[in-house]
Design a binder for these strands. Structure first.
Length: 836
RNA sequence: GCCCGGGUGGCGGAAUGGCAGACGCGGUGGACUCAAAAUCCACUGUCCGAAAGGGCGUGCGGGUUCGAAUCCCGCCCCGGGCACCA
């Protein structure tokens, strides 16, 4: 497609200039008000893909727009450069991951630059940079000292594909690895954890004040999963205590202490430590069988076994009973795998009448049901599944069969039952969370080493801060054994104990790469400080991030970890006090799909931006991404997409011809009174400013672009025929200023032709309300809600005038056909509705 | 199963109680040209009609309102999240 200007040359020219002139390099002593915009730093996997283009187009628009509004805009960029792909490539090709990664970074950086996106590159961060590794390790030591990092033996998620353990957040709901798709298995291993649960309540409460998409906040709330209830002891019938207590007791957690009178049995998880003690000799085989099966089954198998039929296979009677303290009557104890060891106390009081799972189990095992909440009328006939009889009733209602709770509502009864438990010394009020501590150990090479030494005499010894960073050796072999080269490298493994100088071994695991991304936004504020991760006072100047942009796939993972880390760093005194939330606004842009699936390297359905950059150019591609639809929506890349991109290029050509006319342009009037057409163009100019400014504020870029297109459609005939020079100049200059954040190259080049200076250094235009005011508006006249006539009226027309005009309309009179209006609705100056 | 989104021309989408379909893509016709490309102009929801004009129309069914794509109730479909968390 032949273009009106040399797109490639012009774009290259401005990209070079922006890199040289330092317009977008800002420092904390800048007198302008600070504003921090950040796109999630990417894993460097080579040249930018379409998702990057989309993401960085929004980010760059904000940088340029906010700069024109007079802010000192902090816009850094970096690379989340640790991770498995580089290590896998090393195994395949023998190239060291650093060499591989640095090459991918160079490619990505180059393609980001060729989009015309501007950053303060002095602040660039690479996770694998020794300096960044050092501060990562220093922070680890500080967390360790504060008790927020610890080592523990726990059943953890092992991904056989990635050959490493994973955090809970990195396992998909179906039990597969979010990265490789392999089925994750449970293993008991000694691993490093960060105590994120310490902040569970705060992480939950903090969500309320964040201007984030509601669905993201909901996802985090679900993930944290707070539930309020009570924990209490069930004394085991006829058994003495083994741990010094007089009686053996089973502790249970419930959110419904009010239903305690309806407990007809109790359940312990198969992994519960008391199972052996509870199991009588005659039930041992049955219980052992169940425990074996539970231990062997993956989460996926557990899922596929749901349903009442399989429930029968998943429980076993222990032979013991516990005393319900509310009724003083014994109930049987079962082992069942629908109770999880990892939540609450790993044991429950079962109330089939008011819990669906307990109901199903009770049905399968013929256990009794005692209602403690009066179900609604007709419940026993068709309250159950598919309208069948009975079923658990979990709704509100009056307490029954509950002695001193009878007649109360659920809330009051819950409070009273909890008070009673505490008064009797049987139990306590308790809040439980679904959130678990963050497992950060990874059995991989290409990550930040955990700076720990194991000494036979001193145990776990942190590497002293003055010896950091602990770096992985370069001289290692990458073999497809699945084992990290660190684990078998004697020169790395063998060291001396920092305390006693005796022989010791190093920790060979590295940190989850989500650790790197949990504080990089803080490091960006001050990446030069030599003696701390960043200066808290400088961080305070820029933080929190005013606008964070990134994909919805990080709704839980990265965004939750970063919120935790930020708080921990504040509490450690590393980050500014009081600055607990790192991201004030977060915008989740939609993903690009092709043939119904996410466009990605692994799906093999990538469309390379480079082919567009070398043909239609960066501006047209950027404009396309802004124009195609709301940024939060997913977009489908189809056969027709190329035509739309070309249409964007066509629009830019039209702007160019308007702004930089070729020789034979029609000379316009230089002065004289303004005609109605002149006034219309001037009005449109000021209305456009208003429109685009408001659309930018609400992320409605598609309508902002549409408004500009409409404006250009108005200006072209005007410029050809009947224009007044000053009016046209104001119109075109305004248009270029408004386009400057969206299509920066075109705007810069055209502006330079017209004025010789830089469009991006000009302030954002402000609409003059007087010039924008309409001198007449079209008033719609309806009869019974149907449009019958349109009349041009003054914007400040009175109700009486509007009504008179409408009723006087020939069309209306005809429609009325002599009938007199029953009612006339007048909404000046837009509408009159005559009702007959 | 529960909780969020969403359903508008051939397509992407606009309109948040007041002219449905802005803007763009695609399509049709025309101007320019020896011709093509590029550019420019006109038309383009659907049905009836030669036209003027009119009927219908925002997933389906009801309701509120002078007036509903927009608000309310019920249903269908699509997308996402959660799902033995006691």
């Amino acid at each position: 497609m032949a273009r009106a200007y040399d797109v490639i040359e012009v774009e290259r020219k401005w990209q070079r200039r922006w890199a040289e002139d330092g317009t977008y390099e800002v420092d904390a002593d800048d007198p302008r008000p600070p504003w921090y915009v950040l796109s999630m730093y990417p894993y460097p996997s080579g040249p930018a893909h379409m998702g990057h283009v989309r993401n960085y187009t929004f980010g760059d628009l904000l940088v340029r727009h906010r700069t024109m509004l007079g802010y000192a805009v902090l816009s850094p960029f970096g690379f989340d450069s640790f991770g498995l792909p580089a290590e896998n490539a090393a195994i395949k090709t023998g190239t060291h991951p650093r060499i591989f990664t640095d090459a991918r970074i160079a490619e990505l950086k180059e393609s980001i630059t060729s989009l015309g996106a501007v950053y303060d590159w002095r602040r660039e961060i690479r996770s694998h940079d020794p300096e960044y590794i050092k501060w990562n390790q220093v922070i680890f030591q500080r967390l360790l000292a504060a008790g927020l990092a610890y080592r523990a033996n726990a059943p953890v998620n092992w991904c056989p594909g990635c050959k490493t353990v994973l955090a809970n957040e990195q396992v998909l709901p179906d039990g597969t690895c979010e990265r490789s798709g392999d089925v994750v298995v449970k293993r008991d291993l000694e691993q490093w954890f960060f105590r994120i649960t310490e902040y569970a309540d705060e992480l939950l409460a903090g969500l309320d004040d964040l201007e984030w998409p509601e669905r993201v906040k909901t996802m985090q709330r679900n993930w944290i999963g707070r539930s309020e209830g009570a924990e209490y002891d069930l004394v085991v019938a006829g058994r003495d205590g083994t741990d010094g207590r007089e009686r053996m007791a089973l502790r249970v957690f419930t959110t419904r202490p009010d239903t305690s009178f309806g407990m007809t049995y109790a359940v312990v998880a198969p992994e519960h430590p008391m199972v052996d003690a509870l199991t009588t000799p005659e039930h041992q085989n049955e219980v052992a069988e169940l425990r074996k099966r539970a231990a062997a089954s993956t989460d996926v198998e557990r899922m596929s076994e749901s349903g009442p039929l399989s429930l029968a296979k998943r429980g076993a009677f222990t032979g013991s009973s516990v005393i319900n303290p509310f009724t003083n009557r014994p109930v049987p104890v079962y082992v069942a795998d629908y109770v999880l060891m990892g939540y609450g106390t790993g044991a429950i009081m079962a109330v089939p009448a008011e819990d669906h799972r307990d109901w199903d189990f009770a049905q399968a095992y013929g256990l009794p049901v005692v209602r403690t909440v009066r179900p609604p009328e007709g419940w026993e006939e068709h309250g159950g599944p598919n309208g069948g009889p009975g079923g658990a009733y979990t709704g509100a209602g009056e307490k029954i069969n509950s002695e001193w709770l009878n007649g109360l509502d659920i809330t009051t009864a819950t409070a009273k039952a909890t008070e009673w438990l505490e008064a009797e010394g049987i139990g306590v009020r308790k809040i439980n969370y679904r959130l678990r501590d963050w497992l950060i150990s990874r059995q991989r090479f290409w990550g930040c080493p955990i700076p720990i030494v194991y000494c036979p005499d001193h145990g776990i010894v942190p590497v002293p801060v003055d010896q950091l960073p602990v770096l992985a050796p370069d001289d290692v072999q990458f073999l497809p054994t699945g084992e990290s080269p660190l684990a078998t490298n004697p020169q790395f493994l063998n060291t001396t104990c920092p305390l006693c100088g005796g022989p010791a071994t190093r920790e060979t695991d590295t940190m989850d790469t989500f650790v790197d991304s949990s504080w990089y936004f803080l490091r960006f504020t001050d990446p030069w400080t030599p003696d701390q991760p960043f200066d808290p006072d400088i961080a305070r100047h820029w933080m929190p991030v005013d606008q964070y942009i990134g994909g919805i796939e990080h709704a839980i993972l990265h965004l939750l970890y970063a919120r935790f880390f930020n708080r921990a760093l504040v509490d450690l005194g590393l980050a500014p006090a009081g600055m607990r939330e790192p991201f004030a606004h977060y915008y989740a842009q939609g993903m690009i799909r092709m043939d119904g699936t996410k466009m990605s390297k692994s799906k093999g359905n990538l469309v390379a931006p480079s082919s567009y950059l070398s043909t239609v150019g960066a501006d047209a591609l950027r404009l396309f991404h802004l124009f195609v639809g709301p940024p939060a929506d997913d977009m489908d890349w189809t056969d027709q997409t190329d035509s739309v991109i070309e249409g964007c290029g066509r629009f830019l050509d039209r702007v160019w011809r308007l702004a930089v006319p070729a020789g034979e342009a029609v000379p316009l009037l230089q002065e004289g009174p303004l005609t109605p057409k002149d006034l219309e163009v001037r009005r449109a100019t000021h209305r456009l400013i208003d429109r685009v400014t408001r659309d930018f504020e609400r992320w409605s870029y598609n309508t902002a672009v549409a408004a500009c297109m409409e404006f250009v459609n108005l200006l072209h005939p005007y410029a050809r025929a009947d224009g007044q020079a000053q009016v046209l100049d104001e119109a075109v200059d305004t248009l270029l200023l408004l386009l400057a954040p969206m299509t920066p190259h075109l705007a810069a080049e055209a502006w330079e032709h017209r004025h010789g200076d830089h469009v991006h250094l000009h302030p954002w235009p402000v609409a003059d309300p007087e010039l924008a005011a309409e001198e007449s508006v079209t008033m719609v006249v309806q009869v019974n809600g149907k449009v019958r006539d349109r009349i041009e009226v003054a914007p400040d027309i009175s109700e009486a005038e509007a009504e008179a005009l409408a009723l006087g309309s020939a069309v209306v009179m005809e429609a009325l056909g002599g009938r007199s209006p029953r009612r006339v609705i007048v909404r000046p100056p837009k509408l009159v509705n005559v009702v007959v």
